[in-house]
Each structure stands twice: as C-alpha cells, then as structure tokens.
Write a protein that binds this DNA or RNA. Sequence first.
DNA 1: AGAAGTTAAAGTCATAATGACTATAACTCA
DNA 2: TGAGTTATAGTCATTATGACTTTAACTTCT
Lengths: 269, 269
Amino acid sequence: MHSSANVSERQSQAPSVAISTVIFALRPGGESQRPEIWLPLVRRIRQPHLGKWALPGGPLGGTESLQDAAARNLRDTTDLEPTYLEQLYAFGGLDRAATQRLVSIVYWALVRPDQADLTRASRNVHWFRADDVEGLAFDHDEIVAYALGRLRGKIEYGSVAYHFLGERFTLAQLRGVYEAVLGRELDPANFRRQFRSAKDIAPTEEVLQGGRNRPPRLYRYTGPHVLPPPAPAGGREHPGRARSLDADHATADGTASRPPSVVAGPGSS
Amino acid sequence: MHSSANVSERQSQAPSVAISTVIFALRPGGESQRPEIWLPLVRRIRQPHLGKWALPGGPLGGTESLQDAAARNLRDTTDLEPTYLEQLYAFGGLDRAATQRLVSIVYWALVRPDQADLTRASRNVHWFRADDVEGLAFDHDEIVAYALGRLRGKIEYGSVAYHFLGERFTLAQLRGVYEAVLGRELDPANFRRQFRSAKDIAPTEEVLQGGRNRPPRLYRYTGPHVLPPPAPAGGREHPGRARSLDADHATADGTASRPPSVVAGPGSS
DNA sequence: AGAAGTTAAAGTCATAATGACTATAACTCA
DNA sequence: TGAGTTATAGTCATTATGACTTTAACTTCT
C-alpha cells in the first residue's frame, strides 16, 4: 500500500518524457598525445539548474520516434549527423526533477573527430573530457558515468570502436580508441594480430603518408553500420542487434605483398 | 495517419508512459524432458486489442520508480516476487497504439520454476512457450522476440543463468538452463570443467539424492544478485553494473575428497 | 544377487587463442 | 649517415576449447 493521503493525486499526473543524448567523441589529448573521450554539453538557459551544464536534450515531440528525437536533438545542439546512435537507458526516478515527474530516455552517440570539430561554436555548447565531468544539472553526472561504463563494456565485444573513426583508419588509430576507452595500453603487436583476423575489418591498398615514421597501412570497416536502427520485420521503432549485414568479408589475402598506393596524411608538409 | 495539416498540436500532447514486463521462467518441456523458456501473458479485457494476449503491464504510477512499477506489475499479474528484474528497452514508435502516443518502458524478469508454479490460476493469465508466442496485442510479438535475443546474448557472458534456478542446483540443471536458452546441447564434461573454475559458483557439501542415477553434487551461486538494482552513489533509480558484490568466493578446495552429505530430491519415493 | 543402463565426474589430447617478447622494415629528422 | 620511432612479422610458453574416453555411483530389470 504505497498510498498516503495525497499520493493518489499525483498518480494521475502523466509524467513528462524527455530525450537526452550522450555524445562521445575521440579527441587528441593535450600533452599526452593519446586520444581521449570527450563529450559536448549545453548550458542551461532556464530554471531549474540555470547556468549549469547538461546533456543535450529536450521534450519528446509528438511526431517523432524516440530514435528520431535523439537524432534531431543531436543535430540541433551540435550540428552533427550521427553515425552511431543507440538507446542507452530510461531514467525515471521520482526525484529527478523538482517540479514534475520526468522520465528521460537517454541515447548515446559516437562521432568522429572530424565531426566533433564541426561543432557549432557557441558559449552555450562546450566540449569536456568525459572523465572530468562533474556538477552537471539534474542526475546527468550519473548518466554520463553509466554511459562510460556501458561504452567500456561494449567495446571489448561489439563493433562500436569503428564509429569513432573515419572511413579509413590505421591500426594504431583503432588501438588508440581502445586504449582511450579501456584506459590502459595495449600491446601493438598483439592488437594487430587480433584485428588482422577480425571479421569486419579489411586492409585497403593505401598507406597513410606524411607521418614521421614508417607509413601505416589504412584499413576500413566492413561490418554493419548501426544507423538507421535495424528494424525487425514491419516495425518503425526497434532496438539494436544488427547481426545481418556481414555481406562482404573481403578476406584480403595477398594484399600485403602488392605495393600499396599512397594517401596524404595530416602532417604532409 | 499521424500527420494531418497541423502537426504542432500533437507535439504539445504529452505521450503516456506505460511499464511492461517480460517474465521468463524455465519449465520442464513436455515430452522432450528438456527444460524450456516460458512466459506468462495476460488477456486484454478492454479495447484496443480486446481478447488478445499481452505482456503484463500498465500505466506508470506517479509515485513509483520505473523499477518499482515493474516489480509491482509483476506481483499484480502473477503473484511473483522478482529475483531478477532489469530494464530491457524503451519502445516509443509512433504507431504503437492507435488512439494515443504511447511510450512503453519494458523490463524483463527471470523467475524460478517453483515460483512459476505459484502463478495465480486464472483464465486471464496463461503461460506460453516463449518460442510459440504470436499474435499478441500491440507490438508485443516483437518485444518478446527482442527480449529472447537479449537473453541469449546475455547468458553467454553474464550471470543471468543462475536466476532461473533455486538456491542450490546441480550442474546438470545449470546446463539445462544454458541449453534451453541457447537452443543447443552442450557437452556435459566440458560444461563441468568450465563452471568448476567459474568465479561465482561454489560447490556445497550436499548431493541431490533421489534421482535414478549417481547423485549429483549441489552448487550454489555466490555472485552478485541483481535486485534491488545496484544503485551507484546516492541515487534512487539506476541501471545495472553490479560488479561489486564478489565478496566470498568460497574456493572449495578439498571438498571433493570429503564425503558429501545428502539432500532429498523430488523423486525420493 | 548380478547384469544392464544411466548419469556424474575426472581425465586425455589435439588445436586455437592469448600475453610477453624479439626482430626486422620503413620512414623522418638531426 | 645514423639515431629515433613506429609498422609489421614472428617466436614461445601458457591457457582455453572441443571432442572424446574412462571410471564412479546409483537404479532398475531379470
């Protein structure tokens, strides 16, 4: 019997529903040169929590699916087109907002470094190191922490890492993603061995020229992409599980012996 | 047709929020003797979809967290106390319900066979084999299919299997869970080897007497239990990640040589 | 009582995956 | 030209895995 005198009034109040998005991007770390996980936050311009930083989000529109709302949200606040967007969790504790009952359905997105640079310049949108965020509005501190945990859990296992990178990438860059997410260094040789036999990654004919060392070969991801969400059967809105798309597994044998062509890198002065 | 001339009217309509629960239990399969995954459904007693079977659920009360609502839901419809209850996914497609915009936050529960037998006898609550469900109300067919997929994905990896069983269980019973969920047979010897070295399972001093063969030893699960939901820090409502509770890993060395005591089994006539 | 049948439990063996490490190649920069 | 750095390949011991055999402990059939 969870009914005191005045509770049943509130029972009839419909909770409001909001969509929020945790946007993770890989950015080159300051001195350490190692890439790090960053995310953009927006400053609240109204009460409650006026002036605090918060996850991009807003009320769920009546004409869009949850996924669409999250994607719009992402565009509106950061001008980014999502390459990876997945539902994270629905938060609905009683004490999340002071004035009203609020259910937030939180999505998380992964974007590439070049995309992150395109972010709208504004003093109300700012990027933060994911490990440093603190003092956010509402319960967003905890949401970010949870999202980070999920990211760590998922990377060991799924195909999320590629969505931090561009269409072509070196194994060192890919390893950088893993190191940034897992927070520890990985043996380059063993990492290479493992990913050379991975199913959804294939070497290209090109190498990245312009670095100061031996030019690394470029690879590309050939596995399933996650946007739009893989819809089972006839539905419009459905969850993940994109097992199907493993069409071309270009088992690039022999490519190693053929002389690779060349691509200009960022440092080709 | 959710778009007439003016969309913005509906935009302001708050969507209603419901909680539904997919309840999985292991039940002995008919002839094959192999345990199978079953779930209870309730018959709809009002429009829409009157008379169809549906997942237990209802509107989100204003005074309970999402998790609490799911647990209440579970009790109300099946008289079951959840031993495992976790958020599955939030469904919010535009076409889920005809008359209104409906967001359903779906939880899934695992219950033990003895619990499943206690289910309220009613012609409006009935158990079905999980693989057979079809023609449910709303989009519940797809929700069940998704839940089954997640269950399969999670069992290989997490600690969910134990929540289908009682406090003590034999390795054959545990293997039965895996076989039912994964849908294929597993080698008993290899299965044993793997789980004898598993972190969160420990042999007891007892064996299960009363079968018609050599009495198997009983084991117990020593890992983290998932209810109530592992709350990070001070919050009230928070998602999974129960890594902490691995306190006692009773590394039962020597127990094999000591003569185990005996426990009566179901068939002790 | 004894043989047959069944499952529990332990062990064998070849193969695959993993972690730590070494060696060589290819490039830039001083 | 040589020092420094990363790319890439390979070695080796350890561990995990799948298929299979063997022995133990119990019930049931004759």
